[in-house]
Design a protein around this nucleic acid. Structure first.
Lengths: 243, 243
DNA sequence: CAGTGGTCTAGACCACGGT
DNA sequence: CCGTGGTCTAGACCACTGT
């Protein structure tokens, strides 16, 4: 298992893959695993030290290794649940939980913005947005209710699309709009009667209310999302790391 | 404003600071700001391109810039609310929200572990842990109720410490245990009568229930935390980014 | 075509930890 | 003292973008 110099895969990616595997088997027996030193890795794989460091930086961001100046590099037990906290389409999230994802479009309207949507999307008052309300299902059972607001100017003819799948994918592949970062706010509150009816729970049950604003790589806001999650079916999981 | 070659601050940190400032003023007027090319920055500041790239990598992780191959590097609007999602002591979090942080120790016991604590902390059954229950205050008003479980072997005489401040700081500076990564799980549920009494809310009110396991850089679990948060006083904010 | 960022090399000096 | 990771240089070739 070594580096293929004829592959089109960058050396540092190849090295990271090799090391990931080595760390996995080495830490399986609860043994402490000292990663070979940077010079040693460079010599062993016929690479420059800079390339080795690039590979190690990858693994460090994944939480797989940690370094101690003057001592060396060591394997951490693999705690990377979701490779740290990352922005993931709801559809993929469902699959990751072992559910068959589904979606029922409750309504799709084209309307003029009002606060707080104007603020979140940084649009002028009365600019047009699509309001998409969907019930998201896991294995056919309701999990959450979502209202997405999208600037109509950026995704014309959204009403012609198949909206039962991943909105993230539609935006990326049909409109070239890449969801890149997001701000999420979570609160607990009681389900209203209309929410409860769609989610098939009792009115007043505690639910998680989430607001999310999603941004393009440029920092331009592209989606404002309001959602209500059944607390008996869904919990929010985050992996955090020290800055 | 340039790079001080006699400073002990690394060049790439200095350059990042300069660029951060430049981006801030440039994007203030909603103008698109193309960051100078890597070669140009290298020439202008008398640095190698590798050093310039190190500085840009910093800013990219902060969400301040994005790159497009063949085109260039551009400033994103600053969306870094908390420099992405990071693990932060509760005390510091409170201050960030503009509250005067406070803590009331409800109880501190030394007891033998039982599931689920044994699982989370990876301890043998009956190993000793400290159970620390604290009421966290913001500007004197209850915000949340926390139960921390810590392996007694790793922090002997915890009962001699002042526990009204930051537990994270005590663990780091008194025991050399650095909280590094964490897994958090959030659910909505109703407050029990005892929780409600301490939090000064009505029994049955919706609250956020959070479980957190915190790990050292080695990946060893160091703290298991259960907490209940008042939904009228606290909301959880996360910044996410695409992997 | 020229300019951009992505990858890579072969050196160098430093501060730190353990002997 | 030597080995470690942290920082830095001065080159190089590549794939991609726009003209």
């Amino acid at each position: 298992m070594s580096i293929d110099k004829h592959s089109h895969v960058p050396y540092y990616v190849q090295l990271a893959t090799v090391l990931r595997q080595r760390i996995k088997t080495a830490t399986a027996n609860n043994r402490v695993y000292a990663v070979p030193s940077e010079n040693e890795l460079a010599a062993r794989h016929q690479l420059s030290r800079a390339t080795v460091r690039q590979a190690l930086a990858l693994l460090q961001r994944e939480g797989l290794i940690y370094k101690e100046k003057g001592k060396g590099t060591f394997a951490a037990k693999n705690r990377a649940r979701y490779e740290l906290t990352s922005l993931i389409p709801t559809t993929d999230e469902m699959r990751r939980r072992g559910w068959r994802p589904g979606s029922r479009v409750v309504s799709l309207k084209r309307l003029r913005t009002r606060p707080p949507i104007t603020d979140a999307l940084e649009l002028d008052l009365n600019a047009e947005v699509f309001e998409l309300c969907r019930l998201r299902l896991g294995d056919g059972e309701p999990v959450c209710l979502q209202w997405s607001y999208l600037p109509a100017a950026l995704c014309p003819e959204l009403d012609q699309q198949d909206l039962t799948g991943s909105l993230t994918h539609i935006m990326e592949f049909n409109y070239g709009l890449k969801f890149w970062t997001a701000h999420e706010t979570l609160r607990a509150r009681r389900a209203s009667s209309s929410e409860a009816r769609l989610l098939k729970i009792q009115t007043g049950s505690p639910v998680i209310y989430m607001e999310r604003t999603t941004f393009l790589p440029t920092g331009q806001p592209i989606e404002f999302l309001e959602s209500v999650w059944r607390s008996d079916r869904y919990e929010f999981v985050f992996s955090l790391t020290r800055a």
